[in-house]
Amino acid sequence: MKYVISLVKEIVKKRKMILDLALADFRKRFVGSYFGIVWMFLQPLVTVLIYWFIFGEYGMKTVPPVPNATYVVWLVPGLVPWFFYSEALNSITGCLQEYSYLVKKVVFKVEMLPVIKLLSCLLVHFFFVLIMLALYAAYRQPVFATWIQILYYTFAAAMLALAFGYFTSAVNVFFKDMANIVGICLQFGIWMTPIMYDEAIFTSRNPWIGTVLKLNPFYYIVAGYRDSMLTGDWFWRRPTMTLYFWGVTIVVMLVGLRMFKRLRPHFSDVL
């Protein structure tokens, strides 16, 4: 626990440096790219269009469980946090290799690198939140005070990505297949989370499937985004899920930091 407290103090102390490096990482993504920042939005928007076409008005015609909500309005609050989480976890997993020159510097605290990558992904995420708000305005969706709650659920998704990221980034230095394992798990995870489909199509026949889906901690994030944007429910309306999510996140964070601390002395030797 002392290690966690020390890490938080270090982040607060060097917050300007961390923010500067995060902004530099954000800009670096588009160096040498002709269309630059356009690519940041193109792939996620194409993904939304594909799911909308297959599951929405022109395909399976999935009916959202929220009254007076079109499929795309229901879909986007599920996909926006998933785009952020998957990008953050992938980026954090490979951050030690990407910034190997900083890892080898004795004076640089390596634990900052996952945080820097996370903040860089957050900048992208806030752009998508603005697009989501513009979509809701275009569809004339009612405005709820709970929209502000998106900040809380974004923080929750960030902590979950960082918790897993400390573990995967440390292991990835020695076991390069970890990045591929993370990619496969994320492909599997998006279908284990009811983002494109209504979970009722399964739980109506097998109620235990609902329990299995809720064991996935990201279920809490997706449900929270939709509560905030569509129904106006505050996070304390899900007390059991809130306690479960933060319990899992804290345990994973402690395990990840312990693994990171144990392997840290050998990073520079391998890289």
Rank of each mutant, 00 (worst) to 15 (best):
S100M: 07
Y101A: 14
V103Y: 10
K105P: 13
K105W: 14
V106Y: 04
V107L: 10
F108H: 06
M112L: 11
M112D: 07
M112R: 15
L113Y: 11
P114Q: 12
V115N: 10
K117H: 14
L118E: 07
S120A: 13
S120M: 09
S120W: 12
C121S: 13
C121D: 02
C121G: 03
L122S: 06
L123F: 13
H125K: 14
F126Q: 05
F126I: 10
F126W: 07
F127H: 12
F128H: 09
I131F: 07
M132E: 04
L133F: 12
L133R: 07
L135Y: 05
Y136T: 04
A137L: 09
A137C: 06
A138S: 09
A138F: 15
Y139N: 04
Q141F: 01
P142F: 00
P142M: 00
P142T: 00
V143D: 00
A145G: 09
W147C: 00
I148D: 06
I150D: 01
Y152K: 04
Y152T: 08
T154I: 00
T154S: 10
A156I: 02
A157R: 02
A157G: 09
A158R: 15
A158S: 15
M159N: 15
L162I: 02
A163L: 02
F164D: 04
Y166N: 11
F167A: 13
T168A: 10
T168G: 11
T168S: 14
A170G: 10
V171P: 05
V171T: 09
N172T: 09
F174V: 10
F175G: 08
K176Y: 10
K176T: 10
D177T: 07
D177H: 03
D177M: 03
M178E: 11
A179F: 05
I181D: 13
G183F: 06
L186A: 08
L186V: 15
L186E: 13
Q187K: 09
Q187D: 11
F188H: 03
G189Q: 06
I190T: 14
I190C: 05
M192P: 00
M192S: 06
T193L: 01
P194L: 02
Y197G: 12
Y197E: 12
D198G: 07
D198S: 07
A200D: 14
F202M: 08
S204L: 12
S204N: 11
R205C: 14
R205N: 15
R205G: 15
N206L: 15
N206R: 15
W208F: 02
I209D: 02
I209T: 07
G210E: 14
G210Q: 06
T211E: 15
V212R: 03
L213M: 09
K214I: 03
K214L: 08
P217R: 01
F218H: 06
Y220Q: 11
Y220A: 11
I221W: 11
V222I: 14
V222E: 03
Y225T: 01
R226N: 07
S228P: 07
S228T: 05
L230V: 03
G232M: 00
